[in-house]
């Protein structure tokens, strides 16, 4: 996965080096610009069992700022924001690997350095009694839930 490029970022930015699953690391540039989650839309994506994106819908492309070609084949952690504690994603993977669904409030990082909050639900896709992939559906979170998440995540970093 590519590091961020300053020319892609809009506005004043900070830098962070993220330690990602599988020993990967990524330099990200991020700003304080929040993009409001659009009313009435769902962001949908599917990943393989290793978290590599295999399908995205139009809303995913629009909100992430990446092209579909950039997203397909990338790890889902392409959206990882430095304000998200790694323990949240560990909990996500531990849960779905057991064949259960995971739900949580997530701050996602856009290609332009901005961010957007989502309520994410990740479910394992089971075919013939076997987990073959994961589907993630994101919807608009309430501001109350976002404020609760901000407070919680600040204590988990």
């Amino acid at each position: 996965m590519r590091d961020f490029k300053p020319e892609d970022v809009i506005g004043d930015y900070k830098e962070a080096l993220l330690a990602l699953y599988g020993g990967l690391s990524r330099l990200v540039l991020y700003t304080d610009i929040e993009i409001p989650y659009p009313d009435g839309k769902l962001i949908v994506s599917t990943t393989d069992k290793n978290g590599i994106i295999t399908h995205v819908n139009k809303a995913f492309v629009e909100m992430s700022g990446y092209t579909e070609d950039e997203l397909i084949g990338s790890p889902h952690s392409i959206l990882r924001h430095p304000d998200m504690p790694s323990v949240a994603f560990k909990d996500l993977w531990d849960t779905v690997n057991k064949g259960e669904y995971w739900q949580g409030i997530v701050k996602n990082l856009r290609k332009d350095g901005g961010y957007y909050w989502v309520k994410a639900t990740v479910i394992p896709n089971i075919r013939n009694n076997e987990v073959v992939s994961y589907t993630s559906v994101r919807r608009k979170p309430s501001r109350t839930k976002v404020e609760d998440a901000k407070r919680l995540y600040a204590t988990l970093k």
């Binding site: 769902l42 949908v44 599917t46 669904y101 739900q103 639900t121 990740v122 479910i123 896709n125 075919r127 589907t135 993630s136 559906v137 919807r139």
Partner: peptide
């Protein structure tokens, strides 16, 4: 159809 069912499942929880 399986994809739509997965989606409905995700929305129902």
């Amino acid at each position: 159809m399986e994809f739509m069912i997965d989606l409905m499942d995700a929305l129902s929880v």
